[in-house]
Design a binder for these strands. Structure first.
Length: 798
RNA sequence: GCCGGGAUGGUGGAAUUGGUAGACACGCAAGACUUAAAAUUUUGUGGGCGCAAGCCCGUGUGGGUUCGAUUCCCACUCCCGGCACCA
């Protein structure tokens, strides 16, 4: 027998797979044996310069096991891969080295592709996509334009994160604890014109439609929390008349312009009798409108300025210490009891949420209480009243608010999809005609943003200056690019028809393949990526270009693989385990088996190279088993379970457990029962060819290379990939006799062998006559004897 | 603070969802093979007492429900992840 040589075997089969493309998914194909389509998706990676570490492939391997099993079950499996390649790290690398981001991306994807292929993942490489290719981002831009046309993409002045030392705008995710992710400097909020996408218009559906999909419960919970639906009421508090006597006295027309009331949002309208003051956000527009009435406006203005200037760090450092200023000269009337109450501005009220104003009820709200105590305001234990009655009485309105904010879609960067808009002095922002798509990224000399934080694209003058598509006058291109979430918001649609030039995908392909049947990805993408792509998908559904209202039927998450010490793997910590080395030393099959065996798929777990020898030994055991197989003997085709009764029960329960566990992502226990089966086979003088073949089919999803090699060795012409997934016989799993435990007063004292069908009375009788049982029941009265069929007998004495 | 997830031998973990806790694997110990080592292999391996049969304890802590609890309920401790003044 030749020794198991992982290098030789893995190279041989990978070359074969590359040539023969057995994993290619066929559009509209109707595979045999209950074959339906099965679209399995993993999050496509960002090809960083560091290459893969052993944590990356965990989800690929897990989904690969499922893909391989489902193919064997006769399903038409689509299991694609691509590259989410726009983004900052590539741009930063280009900035540092002067190498074009396009070239950086190409080198990195080449390396990633090599590493993934080395693991024998059964991706359909014929559908590989890359978000940075113009043929791809043409359609990212096209979708943006449809949103623009429907008014869902708009420009607004919003507060962005500004790095004080880099002097550039940062995305939220680039700010860590108030510090710039790149330079570690402090950040503050700045107002800037940005493209926004109106995701909040979809907030209710994004929340409600979670009922229709099969996501793991924690994923749904996290999405719901992020959307932050809350039901409450908007109530008007009239501005007290004495504050505006001058206006009332005069018959000035300006009186009509003067605000009459302030609207608050509350979820506790029932506490309105305890509302002893009101608070507005410092940015609230009414503060400026009431300027003439506010007697201490200097003080107020100073507070507003200070609030604006505060950096994130300062705000965090101050903790929950409340600050604020009263708007002297302004009072409002509590509509429930007609009492006048004072008005404050304070930064604990957010301008963007609700109405930017609250009625403060210090008796029931901790934050209001804290503020009231600091400013010596009355705290009134009020009577609670019926919410509906209050709303009716004060002429309020029931409303639903969401924490979800519109999506800031602009980045003042280079390496992203150009936003396909042209700004014209006459016509305003105009969509680039669809026939002119894609708007390709121009060449620039320097990828650095300008000093005032504009995109490096402003320096590409010949690209920027164009004619207005509408009036043909002089106009300028939008120089902001899209965030890296854009390309990943719809990529799963492109896989269904990746080379289409007429549409992002043909309607027939979409109808056949979508929705994605199973999407696995990291928990860290649950709030942003998952929500963004659900939003885009719903929009595409509304404009009738996709057939389903949700993109993903099922969503699961994998746990991170941590370094041996339990810390996250990172280049800076120098604790990265490189899969190249692991594959070199142990082989891809061992790496695959180990990652599936090391622990529950959805939990974080520390890497341990020491523990890898276990699965390697297992593979070698399977390898050596070939010696126990008589190749000449037995059937040469099919994989019927044979009549070897000594293996019968374990064989059938292995088929059942492996089948069930793979679908439940309990890969670790699937492998453990395969190990038990192999240990049993090892004890035998001879293993039948049929049973060995079953073992190989069950093993193939986990360790495809060695399974193929052994399949060939035991004398089968066809590939293990062409085999039908074995079926188990429930009746063969059940054993004739079973050992059951006998408890006396809650403690196990003996166990007896009984035949499965044995009558209850007989079993009880048998149990009570056991010597080890008598010992414990002697001299006591047996009160009760319970028999839980096939499991346990419980005897209770007094 | 809020929302998730978790805690089981020396280690990673398993437990038919209320029914013999510790499957499978790593490590360790002793033996076999070998001139020797590696590889392989056999046996043992939760803790305590005992020559042994066996007994007692044991799933983060404290209580509860039950014939029976790792599993259900109540209170708490610690660890990991996310959000964070959202009215």
């Amino acid at each position: 027998m030749e020794k198991y040589n992982h290098k030789k075997i893995e190279k041989k089969w990978q070359e074969k797979w590359e040539k023969e493309e057995p994993y290619k998914a066929e559009d509209f194909s109707n595979p045999p044996a209950g074959g339906e389509k099965s679209y399995l998706l993993v999050e496509f990676p960002y090809p960083s310069g560091d290459g893969l570490h052993v944590g990356h492939p965990r989800p690929y391997i897990g989904m690969d096991v499922i893909a391989r099993k489902r193919r064997a079950e006769g399903k038409n499996v689509l299991f694609p891969i691509g590259w989410d390649a726009f983004g900052l790290p590539t741009e930063n690398f280009a900035l540092k080295t002067g190498k074009h981001p396009k070239d950086v991306t190409r080198d990195n994807t080449d390396n990633f592709r090599r590493q993934i292929q080395m693991l024998g993942i059964s991706f359909d490489w014929s559908r590989e996509i890359n978000t940075t290719q113009p043929e791809y981002y043409k359609w990212t831009q096209w979708i943006f334009l449809q949103m623009f046309k429907k008014g869902l993409a708009y420009k607004a002045s919003v507060a962005i994160n500004w790095c004080l030392s880099c002097k550039i705008g940062l995305a939220n995710e680039e700010v860590v604890d108030g510090h710039c992710e790149r330079c570690g400097g402090e950040t503050e909020k700045r107002q800037k014109e940005q493209w926004m996408l109106a995701i909040t218009k979809y907030a209710d559906r994004l929340d409600k439609d979670l009922d229709d999909v099969n996501y793991l419960e924690p994923i749904k919970i996290q999405q719901r929390n992020w959307i932050g639906k809350s039901e409450g009421a908007e109530l008007d508090f009239a501005i007290a008349p004495q504050g505006r006597t001058s206006f009332v006295a005069s018959s000035s027309p300006r009186n009509d312009l003067f605000p009459q009331s302030i609207k608050v949002f509350t979820t506790r309208a029932d506490t309105i009798f305890g509302a002893t003051y009101m608070v507005l956000a410092p940015e609230h527009a009414l503060v400026q409108e009431l300027k003439t009435q506010i007697t201490n406006f200097d003080e107020v203005e100073k507070y507003i300025e200070d609030a604006k200037k505060k950096t994130e760090i300062e705000r965090t450092a101050e903790g929950k210490e409340k600050t604020g200023v009263e708007l002297k000269g302004v009072k409002v009337v509590n509509p429930a009891n007609n009492e006048e109450v004072p008005v404050f501005i304070a930064d604990y009220v957010m301008a963007e949420y609700g109405t930017g104003a609250i009625m403060a009820v210090p008796a029931y709200d901790e934050r209001d209480r804290e503020f009231a105590e600091k400013f010596s305001l009355p705290i009134v234990e009020s009577e609670l009243v019926d919410v509906d009655e209050v709303i009716k009485k004060v002429k309020g309105e029931k409303v639903i608010k969401y924490k979800l904010r519109d999506w800031v879609f602009s980045r003042q960067r280079y390496w992203g999809e150009p936003i396909p808009i042209i700004h014209c002095g006459e016509c305003g922002p105009v969509a680039v005609p669809e026939s002119d798509l894609p708007v390709e990224l121009p060449e620039v000399e320097d990828y650095k943003p300008t000093d005032d934080g504009e995109s490096p694209l402003v320096k590409a003058e010949s690209w920027v200056n164009v004619k207005c598509p509408s009036c043909n006058g002089d106009a300028k291109r939008e120089t902001d690019v899209m965030p890296n979430w854009a390309g990943s918001s719809w990529y799963y649609l492109r896989y269904t028809d990746p080379a289409n030039n007429e549409a992002f995908a043909d309607a027939k392909n979409l109808k056949y393949w979508t929705p994605v049947d199973w999407y696995n990805g990291g928990m860290e993408h649950t709030t942003l990526h998952l929500l963004y792509s659900r939003f885009w998908h719903k929009f595409l559904y509304d404009i009738k270009v996709v057939p389903t209202h949700e993109p993903y039927q099922k969503r699961t998450s994998h746990g991170l693989i941590l370094a041996e010490g339990g810390e996250k793997m990172s280049k800076s910590k120098g604790n990265i385990v490189n899969p190249d080395e692991v594959v070199e030393n142990f082989g891809a099959d061992s790496l695959r088996l180990y990652e599936m065996f090391m622990g529950p798929f959805d939990q974080a777990i520390s890497w341990s190279t020491d523990n890898m020898v276990g699965v390697r030994r297992f593979i070698e055991k399977v390898w050596r088993l070939q010696e126990k197989v008589d190749v000449e003997k037995g059937l040469s085709s099919g994989n019927e379970v044979d009549g070897d009764e000594t293996l019968g029960s374990i064989l059938h329960s292995t088929i059942k457990k492996v089948s069930d566990d793979i679908e439940a992502m309990k890969f670790n226990t699937a492998i453990s029962i395969l190990m038990i089966l192999v240990n049993e086979m090892e004890k035998k003088e001879e293993v039948s060819k049929e049973n060995y073949k079953i073992l190989l089919v069950l093993l193939a999803p986990f360790a495809p290379h060695v399974a193929e090699e052994l399949w060939e060795k035991v004398g089968n012409d066809s590939s293990v990939l062409d085999q039908v997934w074995p079926k188990y016989d429930e009746s063969k799993i059940v054993k004739d006799t079973v050992s059951i435990a006998i408890q006396v007063d809650g403690k196990v004292r003996a166990s007896i062998e009984i035949s499965v069908g044995e009558a209850e009375e007989k079993v009880k009788e048998k149990a009570l006559s056991e010597e080890d049982v008598k010992k414990w029941t002697e001299g006591k009265k047996v009160e009760k004897v319970m028999y839980i069929k096939g499991r346990i007998i419980s005897i209770v004495t007094n």
